[in-house]
């Protein structure tokens, strides 16, 4: 009997050790990634990095030969990313939230189920397909790679995420909110706008921030829509760069390794910050809603 009990304790210890080991194995690549980005990227990040546009290959080559730091920065990429994200958010947020409300309010109905299904399919859509579709429909018809096309591509990749977040957030809200709003004589629209939306705000914001952080990392659809540009461009109908496009350009140009690392480290830190902010907002939101 005693030996059986010892055996159980032994098995238990093995199991715990295994769990710890696997957790560490999962964490390892992530830690290595951060270490590499910090080690190779941080040292090139200086003020010029944020205030100048990307260097030409010739400048980079000359700087490398002279053993100096590469002149220039990624301002064109930052501006391009912000510009395209703004377009994407303006297009996606109202549409996504309204669709999410529709899906939640009409759950179980045929048409809503169909949209729900299509949304789930789009959620996992390979981003190159989004890029190609936007290329054919926007770039071809406007005869130019453009910020607009890039923004539309980003918005298509964000839309399913925002729709899903809205629906999931509304599901989390206490069911009594709507009933008690209506019982006070509120109209349907009034209850949605004044009771449900404020209560859902934190959850929606979390979802939007997370999809923004995903969109910041989109590269493939932008290659075929926004193309990239070595200058800052505010013309909506002309090509522009983004941070991810710059990383791709730097990667394909000789002598620019340091820029690849620096841009990656910067982009990565923005994404981590966005996720942390999203998490914090999410926690505060749950506290307001359930007071726990």
């Amino acid at each position: 009997m005693i030996s059986f009990q010892k055996f159980r304790i032994y098995i238990n210890k093995c199991f715990i050790a295994l769990i710890c080991l696997f957790s560490f194995v999962v964490l390892l690549p992530f830690l290595m990634l951060i270490a590499r980005l910090v080690k190779s990227g941080l040292k090139y990040i200086c003020l010029d990095f944020f205030t100048q546009t990307s260097p030409s290959p010739v400048d980079a080559m000359l700087a490398n030969l002279a053993g100096e730091a590469i002149p220039g920065g990624i301002l064109n990429g930052i501006c391009g990313s912000l510009y395209m994200l703004t377009i994407a958010l303006v297009l996606t947020v109202p549409l996504g939230i309204l669709t999410g409300i529709y899906l939640y309010e009409n759950r179980g109905k045929k048409f809503a189920n169909l949209i729900q299904y299509l949304n789930a399919v789009c959620y996992g859509m390979p981003s190159i397909i989004i890029g190609i579709v936007v290329y054919v429909s926007v770039v071809k018809s406007f005869h130019s790679y453009s910020v607009l096309a890039g923004g539309i591509a980003l918005s298509i990749s964000m839309l399913p995420k925002i729709i899903r977040t809205t629906r999931e957030t509304l599901k989390l809200l206490p069911a009594y909110l709507k009933e008690s709003g209506l019982a006070l004589g509120g109209s349907y629209t009034g209850v949605i706008l004044k009771i449900i939306m404020p209560a859902a705000k934190g959850g929606l914001l979390t979802g939007i921030l997370i999809s923004v952080s995903r969109a910041l990392g989109e590269t493939v659809p932008l290659i075929v829509t926004a193309l990239g540009c070595s200058m800052i461009n505010w013309n909506i109908n002309a090509p522009a760069s983004s941070m991810t496009l710059l990383i791709w350009d730097f990667f394909n140009t000789p002598n620019m390794v340091s820029m690849v690392w620096a841009t990656s480290a910067f982009l990565f830190s923005i994404i981590i910050c966005l996720n942390l902010i999203a998490k914090r907002i999410g926690r505060q939101w749950k506290f307001i809603l359930y007071h726990e």
Partner: peptide, 28 residues
């Protein structure tokens, strides 16, 4: 015809003051 529910259900996103006035807000 006002209805009071079994479970107390104040609006969590409004403070006490706003909760009392929520009916007016909803009715514009």
């Amino acid at each position: 015809i006002g209805l009071v529910f079994q479970q107390p259900n104040p609006f969590p996103t409004m403070n006490i003051y706003q909760n009392v006035l929520s009916g007016y807000k909803l009715n514009k």
